[in-house]
């Protein structure tokens, strides 16, 4: 097995993919703009942000599914990508077993298929039809398909959607072990604004642009969270606490902390005074509020990490 060796901060390995000032324009509207990030071998990068903030768009630009309208995307020549898309619906009329799903985009040796399904805990489902799988099983089957290809870069768009809390921890453990075993780079999109995988090297918070980036704080260091998540989960999850100095209004304009409203949102438009300093005082908060909110609200200025206890996950 290859030893992955987390990329030490400062000494960057040659990136598998790097985005420079990427913007994607659709129907006269910038879906994302000014996106900069890269993923290197053995590195786990997590994209977070509210709905419609351009996480999937940025990931698609990174793997070449979307062509950027400005900026540059550079991929290592011959880069092999494994992709788990966010939404995948297979028409009932298409007879597709898990076995056949595995070789959808290319032939694979039988033992690679078996090993990948085994790693994802799906070995017993080899001959099941994908339409009969539960949401969590389907996610794991898709993940197995992506890793069986032995990709250089694994792109996972909300891989834990529709998976219960225990399943989520198991999937994050799986992602970690894939990285450790193969040393591939992983670009992970999280549906959660504040709770990310503990192994994440870099968190990038998007909201049409890169709002901020940083490293997550391990949950296991805070007794509060250990109590909330359970000690096993606390090893796997981490918090990324941050607050934003501007709010995206429903009509697409942007209200800044100084009260002004502009029609756009650029890092260097003079309204963003932040030097990416985040308040890391999350430890002492009491999260007794019930989660009556409808999904993530578009103006996502939560100053505190909000934590979903078991049973409160978003589907």
């Amino acid at each position: 097995m290859l030893s992955p060796a987390k990329t030490p901060a400062g000494i960057r390995a040659e990136p598998l993919v790097s985005l420079e000032n990427v913007g994607v324009l659709r129907n006269g509207r910038w879906l994302v703009r000014g996106i900069d990030f890269s993923v290197s071998r053995g590195e786990i990068v997590t994209l977070i942000g509210p709905n419609g903030s351009g996480k999937s768009t940025s990931a698609k630009a990174a793997i070449g599914v979307l062509k950027p309208d400005e900026g540059r995307v550079e991929r290592k020549p011959g880069l092999k990508v494994g992709y788990v898309p966010q939404k995948l619906s297979i028409d009932w009329t298409l007879p597709l077993s898990v076995r056949r799903l595995m070789t959808l985009t290319g032939p694979l040796p039988e033992r690679d298929i078996a090993a990948a399904l085994d790693a994802a805990g799906m070995a017993h489902m080899l001959d099941a039809e994908v339409q009969h799988l539960s949401g969590g099983e389907f996610q794991r089957a898709l993940m197995a398909r992506a890793i069986a290809r032995k990709p250089d870069l694994l792109v996972l768009d909300e891989p834990v959607q529709g998976v219960d809390f225990a399943g989520e921890i198991a999937l994050y453990d799986l992602i970690k072990s894939i990285r450790n075993a193969t040393g591939c780079g992983i670009l992970l999109i999280s549906h959660d604004l504040h709770v990310v995988m503990a192994e994440t090297d870099t968190v990038i918070c998007l909201n049409g642009h890169v709002c901020c980036r940083g490293t997550p704080e391990s949950v296991s260091r805070s007794p509060e969270y250990v109590r909330l998540f359970g000690s096993r989960a606390a090893q796997t999850l981490a918090v990324y606490s941050h607050h934003h100095d501007h709010t995206h209004l429903p009509d697409g304009r942007v209200q800044h902390a100084d009260g002004t409203v502009t029609g756009h949102c650029f890092p260097d438009d003079g309204h963003h005074g932040h030097d990416h300093s985040h308040d890391h005082d999350h430890a002492g908060h009491d999260h007794s509020h019930d989660h009556g909110h409808a999904e993530h609200d578009p103006g996502h200025d939560h100053p505190h990490p909000h934590v979903h206890a078991e049973g409160e996950r978003h589907a």
Partner: peptide, 17 residues
């Protein structure tokens, strides 16, 4: 192969070459 993969998901087919 490309037709079947694109039937399942065109973006997945495109991403994987």
């Amino acid at each position: 192969r490309p037709l079947l993969a694109a039937t399942v998901n065109a973006e997945l087919a495109e991403a994987e070459g």
